[in-house]
Simulated scan of single mutants.
Amino acid sequence: MKTLPISSRKLPIPINSPNHSDSKHDAANAYAEAAKYYKKVDTNEAASCLERAVNIFCEIGRLNMAASQKIDQAIVYYEKAAEFFQNEEVTTSANQCNLKVAQYASQLEQYEKAIKIYEDIARHSLGNNLLKYGVKGHLLNAGMCHLCKADVVSITNALEKYQDLDPTFTGTRECKFLSDLAAAIDEEDIAKFTNVVKEFDSMTPLDSWKTTMLLRVKEKLKAKELEEDDLT
């Protein structure tokens, strides 16, 4: 049995140090390193270490997420965790980590990467009675990333694909929301776009991620309107 390094057995976090964020970052790295060793002898402990690394990084992220390199690091941590959980066939945990990757990737405007993750999870969830309830939410998130690309053809094609993938999606509030937003974008109607968002939010409150994505779309609509005004 491989002996674990001291850093993987004792991982002090000097929370009162002046470089609190840096020390937590070191601790997260130590936990991630420990997970590599534990994976060979104790998968449960490996999962625990990796989860601690991710959780610590989340704490750091809440303080420093304005910096894109921090988000890049968060993506790396979550991708490692997702791969580990997937290899251990812990699907729910793997999905949770991948959803974080999608969330952070979309923040960096890596929309194709986020779309693929949301669509893959939706597709795999359809065959699982415990997970299929979340399919419409994953498809909604993927659709919103399409909207951020400001490509009406892209979102229209995506909606057709999603309805083929899950026929029940057609009658959902989420599907109608995406369709109405796409129509407003196609018509370059900011007022209509705003009303569609308000109506949906009154029934299903939007979280901060969705709000951020929708604001990006709205800003692009405004910019396009101003550009056209300058040409007239």
Rank of each mutant, 00 (worst) to 15 (best):
F169C: 08
K161L: 12
L147T: 02
Y104W: 12
K176S: 14
V101N: 05
P167R: 11
C148P: 06
N141I: 01
A183K: 13
A182M: 09
T156W: 01
K100C: 04
L130V: 14
N128G: 01
T172L: 07
A142P: 04
L159H: 09
V101W: 08
N129C: 07
E109Y: 01
L99T: 04
K113T: 11
E160M: 07
K132S: 11
Y118Q: 06
G137E: 13
Y111N: 04
Y133K: 15
I155T: 10
H146L: 07
S125V: 08
A114F: 04
K176M: 08
N98S: 09
S179C: 11
S93T: 11
V153Y: 00
D120G: 06
Q107Y: 13
H146N: 07
A114E: 01
A158S: 10
K132Y: 10
L178G: 12
I117S: 02
K149E: 03
L139A: 05
A105D: 05
S154Y: 08
L165I: 03
N98M: 13
P167T: 12
F177Y: 13
S125C: 10
D151E: 00
M144Q: 10
D120T: 12
Q163C: 15
A142C: 05
A150I: 06
T156C: 03
N95V: 03
E119W: 09
S154D: 13
P167C: 07
S179M: 10
C148A: 07
V153D: 12
D151W: 00
A114M: 05
L139Q: 01
D151F: 06
T156Q: 14
A94T: 06
E174L: 10
L140K: 14
T156P: 05
A105P: 00
V135I: 07
R173S: 15
N95R: 08
L130E: 14
T156E: 14
D180M: 08
I117G: 02
T172W: 10
K136E: 14
Y118G: 02
S179A: 14
F177K: 09
Q107N: 00
R173V: 13
K136M: 13
T156L: 04
A150T: 00
E112M: 08
Y111R: 00
I155Q: 04
C148I: 03
I155H: 03
A184C: 03
C148F: 00
K161F: 13
C175R: 09
D151M: 09
K161H: 13
F177W: 07
M144E: 12
Y118E: 07
E109K: 09
A183M: 11
H124K: 12
S106Q: 08
S179K: 15
A114R: 06
A102L: 02
D166Q: 08
Q163N: 15
Q110Y: 03
Q110D: 00
A184T: 04
N157M: 01
G137P: 04
Y133D: 15
G171Q: 15
K132E: 02
E109Q: 10
Q107C: 04
K176Y: 07
Q163K: 15
S106K: 05
S154T: 06
E160G: 13
T168G: 10
A158P: 06
S125R: 04
N98L: 14
M144A: 01
A158V: 03
G143F: 01
